[in-house]
C-alpha cells in the first residue's frame, strides 16, 4: 500500500486555509511501514544458481531499485532482507545462521527458489539442508528453479505487502521494541552430522534408545498413511493446547500500572478501528457532497 498524498490531505480535521495542501494525516504505523517497505536493503549474499538470477534482477533490465530495494549491502549489519538464493548445505548453514544473527532488527528472510524453500532437486543429498526454514524463520517463499527475475520481484513485493500489514501498536508485529536483547538463533554445530542445538535433548533421547535396542538412529519405519494423519491431528491438538496455555498466562499477567497488556492492546486496536471507520464515513459523505456539486 502506498501513501497517496491526495488521499492524505483530505482530513476531517479543520485545517487553516493557508495550510491546505500542506498537511497530511495518517497513522504512525502507516508512515513507519511506508518508510521501511521502500528502503528494504537486501544483503549481497549469493549461494548458488539463484544468485545469478538475483544479480540479473538487480541489474540493467529488471532493476529492483525501482521498488525500494535500493542497493545490496555486503555486510549483514546494514541489511534488512536476507535473500537465501540457492541450495543451503549443512556446511553453509552455520555461517548463514551467524549472518542472520548479525542482522539488525527488523529483518526478513526470503527463500528464493526450490532449494532454499525445501531442498529442491538436491533434497536427498547428504550435505543438503532441506529448506532454510528448518533453521530460520522465512517470510516469503519464491518458487522456481531458478525463479525468473519477475518471480523474484513478485516475491519481494509480497514481502512489502506483508510489512504493510504490521502495526506498531501490536507487540507481536514489532518484537524488536521489546525489552532487552532478542534471543539469537542457535548456531548449528558440525559434529558427525549437523546438529541443531534446539534438538539436543531429542538427539540424546534417540541415542539412548538406540543404545538400548540397537536400532539405527535417525531412521525409522515409515508410518502408514492413517498413522501419519493421526500424528498430524495429535500435533495440532498439542499445538492448540500449548497456545491456549500461553494466552491464559498472558491474560492473567498484570502490568505494574494495573492494566493488562493484551486487553489494552485489544482496546487500542478497537479504538483505532472505530476511528478509521468514522474517517471513512466522513470521506464518503464529503465525496458524495462533491459529486453533487459537480
Amino acid at each position: 500500500m502506498d501513501l497517496n498524498l491526495q488521499e492524505l490531505e483530505r482530513t476531517e480535521f479543520p485545517v487553516p486555509a493557508e495550510l491546505e495542501n500542506n498537511i497530511a494525516i495518517t497513522s504512525l504505523s502507516q508512515l513507519y511501514n511506508w518508510g521501511r517497505r521502500n528502503s528494504m536493503w537486501p544483503m549481497l549474499f549469493g549461494l548458488a544458481c539463484c544468485a545469478i538470477e538475483m544479480i540479473a534482477t538487480a541489474s540493467s533490465r529488471f532493476d529492483f531499485s525501482r521498488f525500494g530495494f535500493e542497493v545490496m549491502r555486503a555486510t549483514p549489519r546494514q541489511a534488512d532482507l536476507m535473500i537465501v538464493s540457492g541450495t543451503v548445505t549443512k556446511k553453509m548453514v552455520v555461517p548463514i545462521v551467524r549472518l542472520y544473527n548479525q542482522m539488525p532488527e527488523p529483518k526478513y528472510v526470503l527463500a528464493m527458489g526450490a532449494c532454499a524453500s525445501g531442498g529442491g532437486p538436491f533434497k536427498e543429498g547428504y550435505n543438503v539442508v532441506s529448506g532454510i526454514d528448518k533453521y530460520l524463520p522465512v517470510d516469503v517463499y519464491v518458487p522456481g528453479c531458478p525463479p525468473t527475475p519477475q518471480a523474484l520481484l513478485f516475491g519481494m513485493i509480497a514481502l512489502q505487502r506483508k510489512i504493510d500489514g504490521q502495526s506498531i501498536a501490536n507487540g507481536d508485529d514489532v518484537p524488536w521494541y521489546g525489552i532487552g536483547p532478542a534471543e539469537p538463533t542457535p548456531v548449528p554445530v558440525l559434529g558427525p552430522d549437523i546438529i541443531d542445538p534446539r534438538q539436543m535433548d531429542m538427539i540424546r533421547r534417540q541415542a539412548e534408545a538406540a543404545a538400548d535396542d540397537m536400532a539405527l538412529v535417525g531412521q525409522r519405519e515409515l508410518p502408514s498413511g492413517t498413522q501419519l494423519v493421526a500424528a498430524k491431528v495429535e500435533t495440532a491438538e498439542a499445538a492448540g493446547a500449548a497456545s491456549a496455555a500461553i494466552s491464559e498466562d498472558a491474560l492473567s499477567f498484570v502490568l505494574p500500572t494495573g492494566g493488562n497488556p493484551w486487553t489494552e492492546a485489544e482496546e487500542i486496536r478497537e479504538k483505532r478501528r472505530l476511528r478509521a471507520l468514522a474517517r471513512k464515513a466522513v470521506r464518503a459523505t464529503r465525496r458524495a457532497a462533491e459529486a453533487e456539486e459537480e
Binding site: 528448518k134 543404545a211 538412529v217 535417525g218
Partner: peptide
Amino acid sequence: NVFGKNVTYPQ
C-alpha cells in the same frame, strides 16, 4: 526422519 531434518547420527 525422527529429527524432521536431513540428518543421521552414528550410534
